[in-house]
Simulated assay, not measured.
Amino acid sequence: MPEPAFAVTPGWLPPHPSPSTPDFTVPPGAVDAHCHVFGPAERFPYAAGRKYTPADASKHDLFALRDRLGFTRNVIVQATCHGADNSALVDALRTAGHRARGVATVRPDVSDEELKDLHEAGVRGVRFNFVRRLVDAPPTDELAAVARRIAPLGWHAVVYFEAADLPHLEDFFASLPVPLVVDHMGRPDVSLPPGGLDFKRFLRFVEAGDVWVKVSCPERLSRTGPPAVDGERHAYRDVVPFARTVVERFGDRVLWGTDWPHPNLKSHMPDDGLLVDHIPHVAATTEQQRLLLVDNPLRLYWPEEAR
């Protein structure tokens, strides 16, 4: 039997086969502001220089999860395994219509026509990855060039980095002419206190600029993990103080997303229903929840509808 064209990375965890129905009901119009589609590889091949090869995760599966969890819309983020070929992303956006927006990956030599096509498909930002295990070198020069290209479109830049690298990046980030959206709270070390120097530095960075924060991916940050007792709905408790601090200080600049299908997780595959039940622990009031899940993503991705 011939080998498949794209053999999945050994140990790759597939999405949860049957996510639970959350106890928490998200507000009407809620947006899952960070999720992905992978492939299918036969139609949308993975990039030659990728650091991992995922299992296919289709737009149809994503939209089914959206409905199961009670969300209305998605923001679909281009993943590194597809490189700068945004075909799978654009296909998902066109299928979803007005119910999805996208964050693409583009290079500095992208044409004006390509940018126009991406905008018409629903793209409103670009993503750059600074996590060292996922990139060969920090893409500062590329991001600076791309930021100049996308500023006239009103787009933003999504940046993914680890807390230890912020001191080397924050001056560069502050120089960019577009708003920034930080993935997963800049990956703080949650074994340290939220009042520690590292997280205080991150909070000062957010406060000083046009910076938005995704209080997402507790499953990536947690040291305690999901609950050990069946039926326990309060998971990833060690992440809560960090996320709650961000929500309380920057309530009009926070976003939330599932990160489905949770690429590159090694320890466990989270139950997306459990992730939704994490939300009221970090956004405790109805007002905070509406800002996090509805008003803020509308302002950033559907500004024509924002209040």
Rank of each mutant, 00 (worst) to 15 (best):
M1Q: 11
P2K: 14
A5V: 04
W12K: 03
S18T: 09
T21C: 10
P22M: 04
D23W: 08
F24N: 03
P28S: 15
G29R: 07
A33I: 12
F38N: 07
G39D: 08
E42Y: 07
R43N: 07
F44K: 08
G49A: 12
D56K: 06
L62K: 06
L65G: 05
L65E: 03
D67M: 08
I76F: 04
V77R: 05
V77A: 01
Q78L: 03
A79S: 12
C81S: 06
G83A: 03
N86G: 14
S87E: 10
A88G: 04
L89Q: 04
V90F: 10
A92C: 02
A100E: 04
G102F: 02
V106D: 00
E113K: 12
L115T: 11
K116Q: 14
K116V: 15
K116C: 14
D117T: 15
E120G: 03
E120T: 08
V123K: 02
V123N: 01
V126G: 01
N129L: 14
R132N: 07
V135Q: 05
V135N: 03
D136T: 13
A137T: 15
P139W: 02
P139F: 01
A147F: 07
R149F: 01
R149W: 00
L153D: 14
A157Y: 02
V158P: 00
V158D: 14
V158H: 13
Y160N: 12
A163V: 02
E170S: 04
F173M: 03
A174Y: 05
A174I: 05
S175C: 09
P179V: 10
L180G: 01
V182T: 10
H184V: 00
R187Q: 05
P188R: 07
P188H: 10
P188Q: 11
D189C: 05
D189G: 06
P194C: 04
R201E: 04
R201S: 11
F202H: 01
F205H: 15
E207T: 05
G209C: 09
G209S: 10
V211M: 13
K214S: 05
V215H: 13
R220K: 09
L221Y: 08
S222H: 07
T224K: 04
P226W: 11
E232A: 15
R233M: 06
H234N: 12
H234I: 12
H234E: 15
D238F: 05
D238R: 03
V239M: 08
P241D: 12
F242H: 09
R244I: 02
T245L: 10
V246I: 15
L255V: 07
W256A: 05
G257A: 06
P261M: 06
N264W: 00
N264R: 13
P270E: 04
D271W: 07
D272N: 09
L275T: 11
L275E: 13
L275R: 09
V276M: 13
H278C: 12
Q288K: 12
R290V: 11
R290N: 12
L291H: 10
L291A: 14
L298Q: 08
R299A: 07
L300I: 11
Y301L: 00
Y301A: 00
A306I: 00
R307M: 02
